Computed example of a mutant assay.
Amino acid sequence: MSVHEAITKHSTAQHLHLVRFAELDEQREQAIEACVDLCRRGLPFSVDEINAITAQIIAHAKQGISPLRSYVTEDMVRDFVKKG
């Protein structure tokens, strides 16, 4: 394999890794928005889906260059809504 091919292969792998991160991050943001909406309306909500996606992001980050995300608590959602 030439140097050019190796660089191209590496760049492609990094790009695909970041694309997958962006997909997971978007799913996480949608889950957060859903929780915030329920909280604002005074309805019960759970952060389980957010944290399941967060776990996927953390596992994915171990395989490449993408950033990490923090787990979310119900208190964090309530505090965000109160400040909003």
Rank of each mutant, 00 (worst) to 15 (best):
residue 48 D to C: 09
residue 61 A to R: 15
residue 32 I to A: 02
residue 71 Y to A: 02
residue 42 G to P: 06
residue 41 R to D: 04
residue 66 S to Y: 00
residue 84 G to T: 07
residue 68 L to S: 12
residue 65 I to A: 11
residue 38 L to F: 00
residue 49 E to N: 08
residue 34 A to R: 09
residue 78 R to I: 10
residue 56 Q to M: 13
residue 69 R to C: 03
residue 25 D to K: 07
residue 53 I to H: 06
residue 30 Q to H: 13
residue 29 E to K: 15
residue 39 C to A: 15
residue 71 Y to Q: 04
residue 74 E to I: 03
residue 21 F to G: 02
residue 22 A to Q: 12
residue 20 R to Q: 09
residue 26 E to W: 06
residue 80 F to M: 13
residue 20 R to L: 08
residue 17 H to N: 13
residue 37 D to S: 12
residue 58 I to K: 15
residue 63 Q to D: 09
residue 10 H to S: 10
residue 65 I to H: 07
residue 49 E to A: 15
residue 43 L to K: 14
residue 61 A to C: 14
residue 84 G to Q: 10
residue 19 V to N: 09
residue 11 S to L: 14
residue 65 I to M: 13
residue 1 M to P: 11
residue 69 R to W: 06
residue 34 A to V: 04
residue 68 L to P: 12
residue 63 Q to P: 01
residue 70 S to K: 13
residue 41 R to T: 00
residue 67 P to A: 09
residue 38 L to N: 07
residue 56 Q to A: 15
residue 58 I to S: 14
residue 35 C to A: 14
residue 56 Q to N: 14
residue 21 F to M: 03
residue 10 H to Q: 09
residue 18 L to G: 07
residue 31 A to N: 08
residue 54 T to L: 01
residue 71 Y to F: 07
residue 40 R to Y: 01
residue 21 F to C: 01
residue 74 E to P: 05
residue 2 S to N: 13
residue 4 H to I: 10
residue 73 T to D: 08
residue 15 H to Q: 15
residue 3 V to C: 06
residue 23 E to K: 04
residue 43 L to P: 06
residue 48 D to Y: 11
residue 71 Y to L: 05
residue 23 E to W: 07
residue 84 G to L: 12
residue 61 A to E: 12
residue 58 I to G: 15
residue 51 N to Q: 04
residue 75 D to A: 11
residue 42 G to Y: 00
residue 17 H to D: 11
residue 49 E to L: 14
residue 73 T to C: 12
residue 63 Q to W: 01
residue 29 E to T: 14
residue 9 K to P: 00
residue 64 G to V: 06
residue 13 A to L: 07
residue 27 Q to M: 14
residue 75 D to T: 06
residue 41 R to F: 05
residue 26 E to L: 15
residue 22 A to H: 05
residue 79 D to L: 13
residue 42 G to S: 10
residue 69 R to Q: 04
residue 39 C to W: 01
residue 47 V to P: 04
residue 51 N to E: 02
residue 21 F to N: 00
residue 77 V to P: 09
residue 31 A to S: 13
residue 48 D to Q: 13
residue 35 C to H: 07
residue 38 L to W: 00
residue 83 K to S: 12
residue 1 M to E: 13
residue 44 P to M: 12
residue 23 E to M: 12
residue 75 D to K: 10
residue 51 N to T: 01
residue 70 S to A: 15
residue 83 K to A: 14
residue 23 E to H: 04
residue 26 E to Q: 05
residue 16 L to V: 05
residue 30 Q to A: 14
residue 20 R to M: 10
residue 55 A to L: 10
residue 29 E to V: 11
residue 34 A to Y: 00
residue 56 Q to F: 00
residue 41 R to C: 03
residue 73 T to Y: 05
residue 80 F to C: 05
residue 46 S to R: 11
residue 52 A to H: 02
residue 32 I to F: 03
residue 44 P to R: 12
residue 44 P to K: 09
residue 39 C to H: 07
residue 70 S to T: 04
residue 59 A to E: 15
residue 9 K to L: 08
residue 26 E to H: 04
residue 16 L to N: 01
residue 71 Y to W: 00
residue 38 L to M: 02
residue 36 V to F: 08
residue 42 G to C: 04
